Simulated scan of single mutants.
Amino acid sequence: MTLVRWLLSLPALHDFTRTYPGQYALPGGAPVGFPAWLGWQHFFNVFLMTLIIRTGLTVRRDTRPTAFWASRKDPGRRISLTLWLHQSLDLLWLVNGAIFVILLFTTGQWMRIVPTSWEVLPNALTAALKYVSLEWPTEDGWVNYNSLQQLAYFAIVFLAAPLAALTGVRMSDVWPKRAKRLGSACPVEWARAVHFPVMLFFVGFIVVHVALVLATGALRNLNHMYGGSDEISWAGFWILVLSLAVIAAAWVAARPLVLAPVARLFGHVSGR
């Protein structure tokens, strides 16, 4: 931290950060603020991701499941009830993601998270140096993210999410088993090796994201996403508390006793 501050005081780096202050101007016509649909999408994505990560970790370590699910078309092939929930949540997450991307590009909100200039790279370096030095980048997220944020959001939406989806589909029964060329181009061993690290990337992003939201003006940041305004008030905080209560309730409910009646609507449920 002290070293970075000293480096920032050097004339060459000082001039660099003045030229590239940490963000660049968005294209003309870029929207200001966050629409209500984005707040709902954010909540639903957090809701699904939390349960997807939980069920994914459970499937990974559960060697003797207590309950199984089988489709009515193929009752002889069973999967654990937790894996059924994991894949069902994945499907909802993909639908939610598709809706998000469509709304992103039809409303102009894409300009916030898709780089439109190569200046994003030197500006991201400046933002990173300022974060490390604990001298937070001057920003107004209601109008424009800093360049490091933009690159991080772009990576999550357009790189990590598609990679998670591709590797997940490759390991599931949805993947066409007779498509040998497609299987050779995307080996299941590769999917297994990549899927878990991508999940860890999501977890790391969530941890850093939440920490920075709380450290750089919690009430205002929460009001941006949950309260739908640029004011500093407790509205966004209390909406967040309510959403966390919903997520906690779903976390507790994600067990065979509760899941079995729902799973029976889509197939057969049986014990060990």
Score class of each variant (00 low, 15 high):
6 W>F: 05
8 L>N: 13
12 A>C: 08
13 L>I: 15
14 H>E: 09
14 H>K: 13
17 T>P: 00
17 T>E: 03
18 R>K: 15
19 T>R: 15
22 G>N: 10
26 L>D: 04
27 P>E: 01
28 G>V: 10
31 P>S: 07
38 L>S: 09
38 L>G: 11
38 L>E: 09
39 G>R: 11
42 H>C: 10
45 N>K: 01
50 T>C: 12
50 T>N: 03
50 T>R: 04
51 L>K: 00
51 L>S: 10
52 I>E: 10
53 I>R: 05
54 R>A: 15
63 T>H: 09
65 P>Y: 00
66 T>P: 01
67 A>S: 14
70 A>L: 03
74 D>N: 14
76 G>L: 02
76 G>T: 01
84 W>D: 11
86 H>W: 04
91 L>H: 08
91 L>A: 13
93 W>T: 09
98 A>Q: 02
99 I>A: 14
102 I>K: 05
103 L>K: 12
107 T>Q: 08
110 W>C: 04
110 W>Y: 14
114 V>D: 02
114 V>E: 01
115 P>V: 08
118 W>Q: 06
118 W>S: 13
123 N>C: 13
125 L>I: 15
125 L>H: 01
126 T>C: 04
130 K>Y: 10
130 K>V: 00
133 S>C: 05
134 L>K: 14
135 E>D: 14
136 W>Q: 03
136 W>G: 00
140 D>G: 05
142 W>N: 06
144 N>D: 10
146 N>P: 07
147 S>T: 06
147 S>K: 10
147 S>G: 03
153 Y>V: 08
154 F>V: 04
158 F>E: 01
160 A>D: 01
161 A>P: 03
162 P>S: 04
164 A>F: 09
164 A>G: 07
165 A>E: 01
165 A>T: 11
166 L>R: 08
166 L>F: 09
167 T>M: 03
171 M>Y: 01
175 W>K: 13
182 L>Y: 03
185 A>F: 12
189 E>F: 09
191 A>G: 10
193 A>P: 02
195 H>Q: 07
197 P>I: 04
198 V>Y: 06
198 V>I: 15
203 V>T: 10
206 I>N: 02
213 V>K: 05
216 T>V: 08
218 A>P: 05
227 G>I: 07
236 G>L: 05
240 L>D: 09
241 V>F: 05
241 V>S: 03
241 V>W: 07
242 L>H: 00
245 A>L: 14
246 V>C: 12
247 I>R: 01
248 A>S: 12
249 A>T: 11
249 A>P: 02
256 P>R: 11
257 L>D: 12
258 V>M: 11
260 A>T: 15
260 A>Y: 00
261 P>Y: 05
262 V>N: 03
264 R>F: 00
266 F>I: 07
267 G>A: 07
